[in-house]
Design a protein around this nucleic acid. Sequence first.
DNA 1: TTGTACGCGTTATCAC
DNA 2: GTGATAACGCGTACAA
Lengths: 347, 347
Amino acid sequence: MNESRLNLEDIAKKAGVSRSTVSRVINKEPYVSEKTRTRVMEIIEQESFRPNPAARMLVTQRTHIIGVVVPQISNVFFADNSYFPMLLQGTSSAINEHDHSMLLWLQQDGETRQEFSHRIARNRLMDGVVLCSIVESDPIVEAVLDIGLPFVTVERPLGFPGRPLDQFNYVTVDNIHAASMAVEHLIRLGRKHIAHISGHLAIADGQDRLLGYRQALTRAGMLIDENLIFPGFFTRESGYRGMKALLKHKPDAVFAGGDTTAQGAIQAIHEAGLRIPEDIAIVGFDDLDIATQTAPKLTTIRQPVQQKGMTAVSLLIDRIEERAHGPQRVLLPTELVIRQSCGAIPS
Amino acid sequence: MNESRLNLEDIAKKAGVSRSTVSRVINKEPYVSEKTRTRVMEIIEQESFRPNPAARMLVTQRTHIIGVVVPQISNVFFADNSYFPMLLQGTSSAINEHDHSMLLWLQQDGETRQEFSHRIARNRLMDGVVLCSIVESDPIVEAVLDIGLPFVTVERPLGFPGRPLDQFNYVTVDNIHAASMAVEHLIRLGRKHIAHISGHLAIADGQDRLLGYRQALTRAGMLIDENLIFPGFFTRESGYRGMKALLKHKPDAVFAGGDTTAQGAIQAIHEAGLRIPEDIAIVGFDDLDIATQTAPKLTTIRQPVQQKGMTAVSLLIDRIEERAHGPQRVLLPTELVIRQSCGAIPS
DNA sequence: TTGTACGCGTTATCAC
DNA sequence: GTGATAACGCGTACAA
């Protein structure tokens, strides 16, 4: 909102019609003659008039603003990988497509999740929010539920005691199945001691990938050695530390919960003087940019991160505009991308 | 804006006062007795009432929304490095501190800069914008100038024909001096054939770093070999290609326009079977996370990216609230961070 | 098909 | 100190 600008009344005067007619034209309502419509349009164009959004919000009770909430789980946003920038590209694209605007919420250093959720809930500017990296009993989810703000999570929601889980809308990938695919690839290649550096286990993605790892081993009749499971945080650093710890137990393969984690693990493997894939094979998850920049290039599970963002926004706007009612869940496809880190020949 | 909520009138009724008094309390205005103030405050707290921002905007002509505009120069945002996430952390933090909200604008794939600038200018939700990666005669800058939207650039602005440059507010670092520091470091270590892979030369940061490179060589009495200058784009890929091209001319050192660029260059150097720093020394710029993840670790120029974002927001809000009038320029400090990529012993 | 009149929830300007 | 009341700019029944 800057300086003094024209309003509906001014345009109406210039066009020789009433304010309501101009309003009808702008909102593409019926019952306006072609003649007046074009005349009004011309003036609007010529003055490059845009209705005052605040006035509009006030009367329609809609802001056309979508919030995107990014909690700071272990600094993943601002330094560790490109997952969130890609997700934002996705949400931004869809939000733009729907003629909305994107309000971005980043958790601050030293701000608790509780405080963060308060900050979001106090703001009344949004028609709905996209939530990611949610954890069990997440205060952010509780807060938006409390104030009745429509939301979609980019993640399977975890337990929320006392909350009807069937009202949650979300978009994600089948992490369990995808993780199984990764581990089965390693099994197929003859690996016997397959380790796992998990993602953040407070997050569904992390939990489900661990579960998929377990299932794949079990299905193959292999024993699960708890020593070969290291709980990480989706970060490079936890991948590095995890691998260092795992090396004591002589794994011949690792499934990392994310590409960034894999990157850290690769560094640890190299520092130990071991070769990839000869001594240790490794599979990642996400297929971020870095997957093609490691040496050797990383075999990984590709998930459509941008599309997750886009879909989340679509679901959200459908809900806001009440085009959709029941719970909406979308599972996007994943794909095993074979590169050089497992010794399989890329077909 | 969700469902039916309470308004000033409701609170007033519960407190047994008038709407105006409640308004005064909320806006911390004087001329309210302590007694009524606390009573009203209690009710506000208890009902967790928040004034309707739309109504507020309508009358105050202020939205308390700051836009942050990120053009997509060679995909830098969503895949190539952590510069923008860090910048966003900075803006977000300051915006939050000032009780504003952050509207994020990302240029879309396939969207021209012209279209992007239109999309931004059409939106009337912002009190001001932070602009980055601006180029010469940038349509985005032209657009915000045209509509009179307050803005601050995170970059020294380039020529804008017919525009009074002295009205531009910006925050940046002294790129020329910083680049000189980097090159002088290489000279001090005895390097004779120092190459430069530049950043994007349409952007001031890119231009100024190149200039600093030239100045340092000249001051040292060294000849400038144009063959040793490769025009890049701040991306890893341009660093990789640039280094491949430069290797033909046998440089013994490289100053890269950014850490990501340096990362690409390092890869090319290694692939050529050369050693760092023995055969080629390399200095980067930014001191991003990746600077400590290359092998060897990267000597680089540190610039305070988050602080750039924070400062930009402060300047902007000062301008919006008319606390500041003249042009405001802030130069943040840089620092040479010596690691292992030049052969100097970190002191 | 068009115009009138009211309401959305605040802040600001007056009186008192 | 406090309370009416007029804006702010738009959408929308309702009347014409």
